[in-house]
């Protein structure tokens, strides 16, 4: 079963912070569905995923609510991975 995070009513960056904190305790390959009302998440969560090696596998916008599905990934450990 997919995990779900209700971030409705929160404003960015809080939905990103809540996503980050949930993903931190999830395993590689697991998926988290995030539902939010601040449309800023359409920008911020994918950006956060790109930096941290996760993947947005689905994103829907029904006008009032936004749903994103994040798949937990991993980054190669140090050194810095350049852009």
């Amino acid at each position: 079963m997919m995990e779900r995070l209700d971030a409705r009513g929160l404003f960015c960056p809080l939905p990103v912070i809540r996503t980050q904190d949930r993903v931190a305790v999830m395993a590689l390959g697991e998926r988290l569905e995030v539902v939010a009302t601040d449309h800023g998440v359409l920008h911020d969560i994918p950006a956060w995923c790109r930096i941290n090696g996760h993947r947005v596998v689905e994103s829907r916008d029904d006008g009032s609510e936004v749903t994103l599905v994040v798949e937990v990934g991993t980054l190669p450990e140090a050194p810095n991975h350049g852009p």
Partner: peptide
């Protein structure tokens, strides 16, 4: 950005996330 409708038209970004992405660095919020 999220509140004011007139600000929504402008491209919105979280600058800290953006900086991290430009530098190729992890960011913890």
């Amino acid at each position: 950005h999220a509140i004011r409708r007139k600000d929504r038209a402008r491209p919105k970004r979280n600058n800290a996330l953006w900086v991290a992405e430009q530098l190729g660095m992890r960011l913890h919020i």
